[in-house]
Write a protein that binds this DNA or RNA. Sequence first.
DNA 1: TGCTAGTCAATACC
DNA 2: GGTATTGACTAGCA
Length: 931
Amino acid sequence: MFNFIVGTKDGTVGPNFARSDGEGDDRLAHILTEASHMMKTPTGPVTNDDSRSNEDSSSPRTQCPSPFSNKDSSQNRRLKKYENDDIPQEKVVRIYQEELAKIMTRRVEDMRHSREGFPGGGMPPHMERPPEDIRMALEAYHRELAKMQPGANLPNLPNLPNLHGLPGVPGVPPFPNLLALQQQALQANQHMNGAGAVQDLSLPKDKNAKMNGMTDSDKDKPMDAEEAIRHAGSAFSLVRPKLEPGQSTGSSASSPLGNAILPPAITPSEDFGGSAAASPLQRMASITNSLISQPSNPPHHPPPQRSMKAVLPPITQQQFDLFNNLNTEEIVRRVKEALSQYSISQRLFGESVLGLSQGSVSDLLARPKPWHMLTQKGREPFIRMKMFLEDDNAVHKLVASQYKIAPEKLMRTGNYSGAPPCPPNMNKPMPPTQKMISDATSLLSKMQQEQLLSSGHLGHLGQPAPLLLTPPGFPPHHAVTLPPQHHDNNKERKPPPPPQPLHQPPVMRGMHQHISPSVYEMAALTQDLDTQTITTKIKEALLANNIGQKIFGEAVLGLSQGSVSELLSKPKPWHMLSIKGREPFIRMQLWLSDAHNIDRLQALKNERREANKRRRSSGPGQDNSSDTSSNDTSEFYHSSSPGPTSGVPSAKKQRVLFSEEQKEALRLAFALDPYPNMPTIEFLAAELGLSTRTITNWFHNHRMRLKQQAPHGLPSEPPARDQSSAPFDPVQFRLLLNQRLLELHKERMGLAGVPLPYPPYFAANSNFAALIGRGLLPPEEQTKDTPSGLDLSMPLKREPDGDDFEDDDVESNLGSEDSLDDDSKTEPKAASTPAGRSNRRKPAAPQWVNPDWQDEKPRNPDEVIINGVCVMRSDDFRREAEETVRVEPSPVPREPSPSPSPVQPSPHTHSPEVLPEDKIKTENEDDRWEY
DNA sequence: TGCTAGTCAATACC
DNA sequence: GGTATTGACTAGCA
C-alpha cells in the first residue's frame, strides 16, 4: 500500500538536509519524491505485520505511524518534531494543493486506463475506489486547507464527474514538476517490481507482475510447476510466499523481502477518522495514502502476525542426488560467515532461503548434525544452504533486501557485482582485506557523494576533509584517505532522466533507502573506528560552537538527545558495537569530515530559531504552551489543526518514577540476584508495588548499564549470582532492606554522621553485608573509602570466554566477589560463572565481526588497549582483589522480618554493630550513583 | 522464552 | 536551554 510520507525523519534530519526558505520548493518536491518512492506499483497493499518490515520502517524512521499502534503518539510526535517542524503554513497549504492535484491527476489517469481498457476490463484493481472515497478525500483536503487558511482562495473542489474528462481537470492547477516526479517514481517502482527488484527475492518478476492483479485466493495458489522448474537452481526460487488465511495482501507483501521499504499502511478509516491528532501534513499523507493505495477496504488493522512464511517446494530427487553428501559443518560455517559478514539476520535468511523460523536457523547453525545422522527432511535445509552458497547472486539479493538497497546500487559499488557475479561466490570469498578495502573505499566514496555532499539546502557544498576510516585489515594508521569529492551544487543530485528510474536523488530518500544502507554497509565493512576519539571531537565541536546534542542528534545522527548524550559520554569500543550501534559513529565520522558541518548545523539552528520566533509571533493563542523545547512542534500542529482532539495533545506517557525505597530495594535485590526468576520478580513486584514488567525492565536496564559502566570504560558483564549463596530469599531480602531503609531514613533525618549500628544479621553474615555494599554503593565509594576492611566493592565480572578484551590475567583477578565467599573460593570457576544464569549466554559481541580480526588484539596481560584509546590495567583489578579482606561466613540467624509491603523504612531494625560512616551515602549521591 | 543491544523520551539536574 | 539519567520498548539471537 502506498503511504505518502510527509517527510522522513532521516531525510529531514540527515546531515544533508536543512532548510532555507529559498529552497522550500525543492524540499517539497523532495518530500513528494520521497513519498512517490514509497509508493509501489499497484500490486496490492503491503502488510506491515512482518516485524522486519516494522523494524525497517521504524529503524530508518520513516514510518507513518498507524494511529492505533502503541508507538503512535510518540511516533507522531517525532514526525512532527523532526519533519514538519518549521515548515511555514503556506507551504503546508501548498503541499495540500499539490496533493490535490496529484490525486486528481491520478484519478484522471485511472479513468483513462479504464476507458482504454485495462486488461481484464474495467478499472485496474487498485483503482476500484468508489467516487465517494475520492470525494471524501478531496473534502478532507479542503477542510485541512480551510483550517489553515480560513480566508485563502482555495482551488475549486472539482466536480467528480469532471474526473472523467480528460485532459483538464477544473480547479486543479498544473504541477508539471510534481507530476514529473510522480511519473518518475512510478517508473522507478515499475523497475523495482521488475528486473532486479530490490525487495522481492522470492518471486520472479513476471510472477510478481502477474500477482499484481491477483486476488488473495489466487495468491494462495501454489506456484505452478513450470514456474518452479524454471527457477530451480536459485535458492530464492525455492521460496514461495505463504499467505496466512484471510490475509489481504498483495504480492509484494508476501515476501519478507518484499515489504521492507514501505512503512505501515494507513487505512482510509484511519486516515479520516483516526488521524485527527496528526499534523495537517500527516493527515494529508494519510488521505493520499488511502486514495492511491488499494484495495478500497484493506484490513482495518494490519494483522500483527507475520505475513509470510516461505513455503518451499520440496527438494527434488535430482537435487538430493546432486547433494548426496554434504559437509554440514562446512556449510554452516560458510553460511554463518556470509550472514555475519553481510549482517543478514537469521530470520531473513531462514524465511527467505530455508523456509524456517529464526529459531530453527539458529539451532541449525549452532548445532549442525553430521550429514549421515540426518533424515531426508533434515538434510533439506542444508541442501538449501548449499544452493544458497552456490548462488552467486543470492547473498547480494539478500543483502540488498535487508539493507533496502537496489541491487543495481550494490553493483555500482564495484564489489557486490551483480551479474555475472565475480567472486562473491561465497565458496571462495575474496580475501577480507582486499575486499573490505575496496568495499569501504567505494562506499566511502559513495557516501561522500551522496550523503555528506548532498546537503545542499544550506548552501554551497565544499570540499570535505579527508575521511579517515580504517579499512579492515589495516592498522589505524593506514586509514583510507579519500580524495575529497567535489560537488558544485545540488543540481548534480537532481533526478536523472527517466531512463534510470532507480537512480534517484539521495536527498530525502536520503537516510532511509539510499543513504542509511550505505552507512549500514560502512558500519559492517569498517574494521576499526576510534569511537572515543570521534566522540571527543564531536563533543569539542559541539561545545565550541554551542550546538546542542538535540539538534546534532536529530540532524546528523537521527537520534534523540538522550541517545546522543549516552553515545558521547559513554562510547563503546568499535568492536563491541553491533552494526546498528556503529551507525551513529559512522555518521559522526562523516560529519566530522564534512568541511561545512558546523555551518550546516548553525544554519539549521538559526532556521529553527527563526521558525520558533515566527511561531511565537504568529498570534495570540498560537503559543499557549510552555514551549520548553524550541524544536517541539507539536503545539504548532495542534494549534493549527482544530480537530476533535484539538488542544489535547496525545497524553504524555508518564514514566514510572521509583521512590528511593523502591530503588534501594531493587538494588538490594539485584545484589542478591541479578537474574531473578519469575517468582522473585513477582515477589518484588508485590513487595514494591510495581508491575512485574517494571521489575523486569529495571533488572534488564540495570544489567545493561552496569555493563556500560565498567571501570576504565571496559564493558563488563553484570555481576553473576553467587552460586554458593542461596537463591533469592524473601526473608533475607526484607531483613536487609529494612536495614538499608533505616540508613536512608537516618540520612534524611540528618543523622548521616551518626554511627549506624549493624544489625546482628550483618555481623553474622558477611556475605550479605558484602552484597549490600557491593550492590548498593557506587564503585568509587566502594573502592576508595573502605576502612572497615570489608570489601564492599563489586568488581564487574566478565565472562571467561569470547570477549575481545578477554585477558586471562585480568579475568583471574576480577573475581574478588569470590574472595568474599568462602564457598565460592572452593569452586572459583563455578562462582565466576554460576550455573544459574550468568553463563547462559555468550558475551555480547558484534555478530558480524570477522574472527580473523580479533587476533590482532593486544595480548599484554597487564594492559589491554581498547579501541586504541582506553587502556585497562589489570593491576587495578589485582589491587582491588588484594585489598579484599575475606570474612568467614557465620551461621545466619534467620529471623522473620516485619516485611512491610510495599517497602517502607522500618524503625525497628536492631543493630549492635556499626556501619561505617562512609557507607552511608547521601540522597544526592544516591541519585548520582554510577555503576 | 529470556536474554542483549539499541533506542526513545520523560524527567532530573545543571 | 542544555545535558544526564533512566524506565520502557523493539528487534534479534540462542
